[in-house]
Design a protein around this nucleic acid. Structure first.
Lengths: 219, 219
DNA sequence: TAGATTGTTAATCGATTAACAATC
DNA sequence: TAGATTGTTAATCGATTAACAATC
């Protein structure tokens, strides 16, 4: 069942669908039409149907979509039915905050380790994990089946660290460092450049202009 | 000098230009052509010229762009020549991490206050600011010329808090709560939905597909 | 069955890229 | 001046929206 390439524009909208469907499910809603979901999410019904159809027919003519089924299917598409082991590199405020964020666990993202080059932070507990020295990172990645590395270190260190991670088999980097990483084809990078996001906000304040309803989901 | 509306696609790229130009400036580079910048940033030279031209001619035929001048101009466009006072609502791990992030100050974003409804957190120091009780938020916003509120509270509280902020004159919300806010026209919202970002990464791991080179900046 | 609503094709819109004349 | 490179128009590409036939 080879699927055709889905555009990142569509992928970027999936988590938001997933969130709304989860809420509907929790409210006990059984079915929903693209029309009604459109009203809720403030996107066109047409876009909703187009988006879902990228992955095959989830709906039924005359009925709409079954909320729970659709929720589960989108979860599978997003890979949330699998476990992903992740480590955090950089045990500063942000790194520790992310380590303490329990909701990731619910989605299958399991916090396995955290590393820092500052000896004063080594040994500190983040949830039930102790901060380890940077020297141990490479071995840890190799030996513990780590899929994702969360980079919360200053930009100066980010490029060489990313390189080491790649060499040791990491599959994806969630990059909070304020620098663009250059990784080989096949390694995924998702950037969260917080200051970029803040600057966009700053621009929009100045202009008082109304940006598109929902322009990002992460970033 | 009324300018025409600039698309959010362009605005979203400005912080990245700003970052690269800042680095070039620090390296002592005086001028750069769209061609060279294109090689560096991996976007087309055509897009670079189109983007800059939205704001008037920053370059010179046969010469290129003056790095420092362009850097400053983009800074002004982004509103970084002004001060923005911000507060943080929610003194959990993420809120404290953002309060401690010194780089925002450099760009004119000044940390003025932090609030939490948990009495155990009230009084705790974040940098040189003490956590205040939620009850004081509204008055504080009114009396201290606060432009931006950073929302780092659970999604359940986010909607009513956003409402209060708007009522008391906030101009923009940087929303880390996992919910969509519905604010009046003219109030800016920039969402940073971290788990959405992580889900995108998860999708891309599964497919092993190469997403567009740089698809976000903050988000 | 008739009504509702999808799946899907066609039309539109906007963003990106290419091309080149203007000009430093 | 000649060469380089912008500013800008035109062409292309992709994403969104509209329309409607298929079908539950």
């Amino acid at each position: 069942m080879e699927e055709k390439e889905i555009s990142q524009a569509v992928i970027g909208r999936l988590p938001r669908y997933f969130r709304y469907l989860g809420e509907l499910k929790d409210q006990g809603v059984e079915r929903i039409s693209s029309q009604d979901l459109s009203g809720l999410m403030k996107v066109t019904a047409s876009q909703i149907r187009q988006d879902f159809n990228n992955f095959g027919g989830f709906g039924q003519q005359g009925y709409g979509y079954n909320v729970e089924y659709l929720y589960n299917e989108i979860g599978k598409i997003l890979g949330l039915d699998r476990q992903h082991n992740f480590i955090i590199v950089g045990a500063g405020n942000l790194g520790r905050a992310l380590g303490n964020y329990l909701n990731f666990e619910r989605r299958g993202f399991i916090f396995r380790g955290i590393f820092d080059c500052n000896p004063e932070l080594v040994g500190m507990k983040v949830r039930d994990v102790s901060v380890m020295p940077m020297e141990e990172m490479e071995r840890f990645v190799r030996e513990n089946n780590i899929d994702i590395a969360v980079l919360t270190i200053p930009k100066t260190g980010a490029v060489p660290v990313a390189e080491k991670l790649v060499q040791n088999g990491i599959r994806a980097i969630w990059n909070f460092a304020h620098v663009d990483l250059n990784v080989p084809e096949g390694i995924q990078v998702e950037n969260v450049h917080l200051s970029d996001s803040l600057m966009k906000l700053s621009y929009n304040i100045r202009r008082g202009q109304k940006p598109e309803e929902f322009e990002d989901g992460g970033t």
